[in-house]
Design a protein around this nucleic acid. Sequence first.
DNA 1: ATTAATGCAACAATGGTTGTTACATTAAAG
DNA 2: CTTTAATGTAACAACCATTGTTGCATTAAT
Lengths: 132, 132
Amino acid sequence: MKRNSRLSLALHTLSHMADDPDRVRTSADIADHAGTNPVVVRRVLGRLREAGLLTSEKGHSGGWKLARKPERITLADVYLALDESLVATANEDSDPVCSVEYALHRRVSGVLREIEQSLVKRLGETTISEIR
Amino acid sequence: MKRNSRLSLALHTLSHMADDPDRVRTSADIADHAGTNPVVVRRVLGRLREAGLLTSEKGHSGGWKLARKPERITLADVYLALDESLVATANEDSDPVCSVEYALHRRVSGVLREIEQSLVKRLGETTISEIR
DNA sequence: ATTAATGCAACAATGGTTGTTACATTAAAG
DNA sequence: CTTTAATGTAACAACCATTGTTGCATTAAT
């Protein structure tokens, strides 16, 4: 696996789950299919659970399952759950050299945030059951 | 500087240049304003030059300048010049475990490519002179 | 000839991500 | 009640991309 693997892994897994929503899957199963490690899977799916997209059960015969119908989980849900922020840069805590420079900074950041928002909007138009 | 600094630095610089398109700026000047290093600036701006967005002159009184009017440089031009690929993952050269898995891989990749395209389309709707 | 710029290579430092091991906890199964 | 099989989590190593930095060749104006 390479870059952006969190989003890729998440979509991969969810899309797979959408094919048979009631089946419970272990992180080991999922890791096998995705070609990675169970701990990595739990790490990523843990975030999706925090966001209410998945449920997990501990103990014998435990595992992972969709928390709602696949038609009601959008790519935006996934993206936001992972807290990716692909476009917008984090806070730039560089010292504001001069006020003009600071204003320019703010303008650029504003544009990037705007772009990020339009990305999320686009992601909201597709559900995991529509991955074709 | 942190993550995504290439795109951020590029937009910052171009937006600044758009305010006075005929002025020639040195990488040292730009680096000062952006709070980074001249070599880093040359690295990033070099890509923009390759894409035909900027020109540079060597030697005494050389420097950087916009290659065309700021109204004719879109954020998509910048994004593509930097070869960012924020959304779409690079090729996943993992061994196709089984054919079903391979097909799923392709579907996910396809969706991500689609999202990436819509991002570029959105970026194409704003020019560097419109950074507000 | 001097000065001041880009171009580029090489390398260190940093930081984020992934992979891995280990172990505590939990719950079903026998 | 013991065993088995799962998640949850911490800790750490390995990897890799990015950034910062130094040094120097090249180029062009003065």
